[in-house]
Computed example of a mutant assay.
Amino acid sequence: MEQLTFEYNAKQKVSRRAHVGVAGSGDLEILIEPCQERRAYVVIRTRSNGFGETWKAVLDRFFTVYELAVSIEINDFGATPGVVSLRLAQAVEVLIDE
C-alpha cells in the first residue's frame, strides 16, 4: 500500500459532503468534506505503488476545472485514471446537486 498526499489552491467553498464509489475489486471510493480554508487537500491510499505522477496528472486536471475547497480521501484498489476521473466528476455532481 502506498499513501500519497496533494494540496491545491481553491476558490469555491462547498457546504456538503460526498461519497461515491466502492473500495474493492478494482475500483475506488472517494469521500469529500468541505474545507474552511481556501485549499484542497487530497489523501490517496492505493494498493498500486509507483503511480504518483499519474495521480498528480489526474488531480492537476481536475483542480484546473474545479477549484473546490475540500478535503478528499481516495481509497484505491487498482482503478484506472479514467475511472478516477469519472468518480471525481460524480462527486462534483453530488456536491453541487441541491
Results as ranks from 00 to 15, higher is better:
G21K: 03
Y41H: 15
V84M: 12
G52R: 08
L68P: 01
F62T: 00
A23T: 02
T46A: 08
A69Q: 02
I32H: 02
R47G: 13
W55Q: 04
E2Q: 10
G82M: 09
S15K: 11
V22M: 05
D76V: 00
S25F: 09
G82A: 10
L86C: 09
V84N: 00
I44A: 06
K11A: 07
I74K: 00
D60M: 06
V14K: 02
D60H: 09
E98Q: 13
T46P: 03
R39E: 13
Q3A: 11
F63D: 02
L95S: 04
E53R: 08
A10D: 04
V65Y: 09
F62W: 07
R47N: 15
Q3M: 12
E53I: 05
R39I: 10
L59Y: 04
A18W: 01
A18S: 08
Q12N: 08
F63I: 01
L95Q: 06
P34C: 03
V83S: 00
V20R: 03
S15Y: 12
E33Y: 14
F63Y: 12
I30W: 01
F63E: 00
A79W: 03
F51P: 00
T64R: 11
R38S: 15
L31M: 13
P34V: 01
G50V: 07
K11D: 11
I30S: 02
R87P: 00
C35K: 13
L28H: 04
E98M: 08
F6M: 13
